[in-house]
């Protein structure tokens, strides 16, 4: 009975919404509430392929998708590199201090994602803190155009997603058997060799999980690019948001969502394989 109930919850809250998104990609936008004619009506099929043909024919959407994947890759790589170093540092601390260090990683999160992005705006804008400090120091005379750029967006993304990389890496690195590294060192391996041939391979599954745990949500991120990114470099999350809230073109938003999901299908399946306890 409990299995039937959980099936019902999953079908209603997870499967059905996704199926509806897929179907909505073949709807027709109208001026009304809701602003759409569904692809199936009383008379049967009444759908259109307009949203999908626009998506596939217009380079704007394809460029947007590719740019999103590229930025998500850079974000995930940066988070992985910095997160790996941090996780090694936490794992090599005394057990009592590990909890404190993890708390220090997580606590900034509690200010909330919107407020943290507001802080970056305050730091990076033309009259902001960083420019003011640099001008006071006499290093620059004109404010640097830091905000609303790809760089500002990457700073925000790494700031937002870094803990997602640190947590799985710390879990894996604290559990590793230190004797393996000692044995390698005893047999004459240098520190770099020990790291590359023992530590890194041991942590590879966790590193892959950490990369995906950042990459997948970053690919569809809305808030950070909206607040910090350049207005002309459109990302897919913002595009879906805009089609829905501004243009009120639900079929286009649904088709873009379906395309994003299709591109993320392999990373999502990989992540589930790496993380799910079976």
């Amino acid at each position: 009975m409990i299995r039937a109930a959980t099936w019902a919850a999953l079908v209603l809250l997870v499967a059905a919404p996704l199926v509806i998104v897929f179907g909505m990609g073949f709807g027709t936008p109208i001026a009304g509430v809701p602003p759409v004619i569904p692809p199936f009506g009383a008379a049967g099929w009444q759908g259109s392929f307009e949203a999908w043909s626009l998506l596939l024919a217009d380079n704007f959407y394809l460029d947007t998708l590719l740019r999103s994947l590229r930025l998500a890759t850079v974000t995930a790589a940066l988070c992985l590199a910095l997160g790996f170093g941090m996780a090694l540092g936490i794992a090599s601390a005394a057990p009592r201090r590990q909890a404190l260090l993890l708390a220090l990683v997580l606590l900034p999160f509690w200010t909330g994602s919107v407020l943290r992005m507001a802080a970056w705006v305050g730091l990076l804008r033309d009259g902001g803190w960083i420019n003011a400090v640099l001008m006071q120091a006499g290093l620059i005379t004109e404010p640097l155009p830091l905000l609303y750029s790809e760089g500002a967006m990457l700073v925000g993304m790494v700031h937002g997603y870094l803990p997602f990389a640190v947590l799985p890496l710390t879990a894996a690195l604290t559990k590793r058997d230190l004797r393996l590294e000692e044995a390698a060192a005893d047999l004459g391996a240098g520190r770099a060799t020990v790291f590359l041939t023992v530590t890194l391979p041991l942590a590879a599954p966790a590193a892959a999980a950490a990369f995906l745990l950042v990459f997948i949500p970053a690919a569809g991120e809305v808030v950070i690019p909206e607040v910090l990114g350049a207005p002309d470099s459109m990302l897919i999350g913002r595009a879906i948001w805009g089609e829905f809230f501004q243009t009120r073109d639900w079929p286009q938003a649904a088709a873009l969502s379906t395309a994003l999901l299709a591109l993320l299908l392999i990373p999502m399946a990989l992540y589930q394989r790496l993380s799910v306890v079976r």
Binding site: L13, P17, L18, I20, V21, M24, I216, P217, A219, G220, E221, V222, G237, I240, W241, F244, W250, A253, A254, S257, L260, L261, L264, M268, Y271, Q272
Partner: peptide, 13 residues
């Protein structure tokens, strides 16, 4: 693992 923008649109629909 679903991007939140997709989950949001899906649940609204």
């Amino acid at each position: 693992v679903l991007p939140e923008v997709v989950t949001g649109l899906a649940l609204l629909l």
